[in-house]
Simulated scan of single mutants.
Amino acid sequence: MPAALVTGASRGIGRAIAVRFAADGYDVAVNYRSSESGANEVVETIETETEQSALAVQADVADPATVEACLDDTIDAFGSLDHVVNNAGINQHRYTPDLSPEAFQRLLNVNVVGTFAVTKAALPHLEESTVSEGPSVINLSSRLAHTGADYEPHYATSKVGIIGLTKSHALEFGPTIRANAIAPGFIETDMTDATTSEEEKERKRQDVVPVGRLGKPRDIGQAAAYLRDASFVTGETLNVNGGQRMQ
């Protein structure tokens, strides 16, 4: 049975990706950092609604030791690993005068170094994959990687770094392993609910002229499923923003 690891999968976008992969026939390792109950709920949903197996695996992606343990648990449970989705990340609205170098570095450690650490730990297992579409790594970037963000410069910087890492890994790992990124626009999740007022959401809805709505986590799940199966796509960043920014 093919298997996937999704980091930061206890809620929001990660949860939607994990559930979508299970619906498509994948056993899924549901990574979490602190929300064990959330991860267990995702596992229960997968095992109740699909015929697939799921496992909650704890790791702080910024801690290489816990990442290695997470991969070991995944392989022990499923015997193989075919796709990795690096979704785990943190966000923080803070302008430069109020942003310390330590906070900047902490966010980079989670969002960029964590993505690298999980990919590095998964690499020997992905190299052994025999799935027909070929194994892949899918990294979560952001629309802000293209536009910047005056209210969270460290977050935008981290998402630029993820695109650079994705392209580098596509070059390095090909032709065996594909590497792609997704750059979501505004997606309604617990994280965005905590930092965005209803007035700001309405303004964003009006800005997304072609589609006329904000994104849902399932929209990113669909995008991840496409990149998982797109055997002739690597080194690309798929923009999923309802037309908010076209390239």
Rank of each mutant, 00 (worst) to 15 (best):
P2C: 11
V6H: 06
G12F: 07
G12T: 01
R15P: 04
R20Q: 02
R20P: 02
D27F: 10
V28S: 04
R33E: 05
S34W: 08
S35P: 01
E36Y: 14
E36S: 14
G38K: 07
A39R: 01
A39T: 03
E49I: 13
V57L: 14
P64M: 08
T66N: 08
D73P: 06
D73K: 15
T74V: 04
I75G: 09
N86S: 09
N87V: 06
G89I: 04
G89R: 03
I90T: 08
I90G: 01
H93P: 08
H93Y: 12
Y95I: 12
E102W: 15
E102A: 08
E102C: 03
L107P: 01
L108N: 06
N109G: 10
V110R: 05
N111Y: 05
V113S: 12
G114T: 03
G114V: 02
G114D: 00
A117M: 13
P124M: 13
L126Y: 06
E128A: 12
S129R: 08
G134N: 05
S136P: 01
S136E: 03
N139G: 01
L140D: 01
R143I: 14
L144N: 07
A145R: 05
H146C: 10
T147L: 15
Y151I: 09
P153T: 05
H154C: 06
T157Y: 14
S158T: 03
K159Q: 03
V160G: 11
I162C: 04
K167M: 05
F173P: 00
F173C: 09
F173T: 01
G174M: 12
R178Q: 14
A179G: 03
N180L: 08
I182Q: 00
I182T: 02
G185D: 05
F186M: 10
M191G: 14
T192Y: 13
T192M: 09
D193R: 13
A194Y: 15
E202Y: 13
D207N: 13
R213C: 11
L214N: 01
K216I: 11
D219G: 05
I220A: 08
A225R: 09
L227F: 09
R228D: 09
D229P: 11
A230C: 06
V233W: 11
G235S: 02
L238I: 12
V240P: 00
V240L: 11
G242P: 02
M246L: 13
Q247S: 15
